[in-house]
Amino acid sequence: MHELTTTRNNYQIDPVLTVWGWEIPVYLFLGGMVAGMMIISGYFLFKGRQKEPTCSCFYVPWVSLILLSLGMFSLFLDLSHKVYVWRLYTTFKIASPMSWGAWILILVYPVIIANIFIRLPKFVTDKFPGLEKYSKMLTDRPRLIQNIGVANMILGALLGMYTGVLLSSLGARPLWNTSILWLLFLVSGLSGAAAFVHMVAKNIYERELLAKADNGFLTFEIFVIGLMFIGLATSTEVHQEAAQMLLSGSFAPVFWVFVVGIGIIIPLIIQLFAVNHKIQHTPVAPIMVIAGGLILRFVIVNAGQVSHYLNAHF
């Protein structure tokens, strides 16, 4: 026998950790979506697609701006000592991914805004006609637009990676403590963003391109999930226990049905038919991908909090 009893019963700590509620998964999901959108928009700018009047690189950064702000608000809601939030920006802690993230988020804003300035919508220029000269300054310089595209891609990749590194650096939670989590969250963010742009794109070429790209991201995501399980299952006992929670434990039904089934496999099949012109493009598959991405963050955050060093002993 091996039995452990404790008198400790701290709120949100015992019997399992529940300090992070809905706010953190939502923040990680929105951060991932924004990261993917920045990479997609940045790629289009790099390729000079801003010459196309219906290019999604004109409206995607607006969506990024709104989602990023919602994500940061969600993160703010999670803080339990809110009046001291400004402390994040009076220091930089090199060992803390959360500190890195706080500063990356600050750098992301100007890069998205630079993308927005390439073509300002009419309601903005009507209200602030003075801004038009900045727009013209950018459109006169295609090389600068390319650089804005590159900056969007780099910062988007950093943002997407950071959402995974934030969790994987917390070694006390074996499920998160896998060095592939950044790749899973980045590719999931890319697939969610590609699904969103595919759904709303006015340009037929971009819609087709993003549907194909999304199929690639979803296929790659399956491989990454497989690699994550191989890594966990061949690691220490606590990591094996953590993998078991998703493979056949209490989180398995939601993981396999909603994340893998509805979030990856089914939309992948639908989109394969769509890109081969067997069926029409509909919003069904993209909505499934986006919902799957959100549920993935909820599963990883919640299951990660349950996974623990103590579990391995019993």
């Binding site: 701290n10 992070w20 339990s80 006390a172």
Partner: peptide, 18 residues
């Protein structure tokens, strides 16, 4: 402290609380 709970989640002993 901003109450981000990173320290709580990072402790293998669950010694911290908010």
């Amino acid at each position: 402290c901003i109450g981000c709970k990173a320290c709580v989640a990072s402790c293998p002993y669950d010694a911290r609380f908010i």
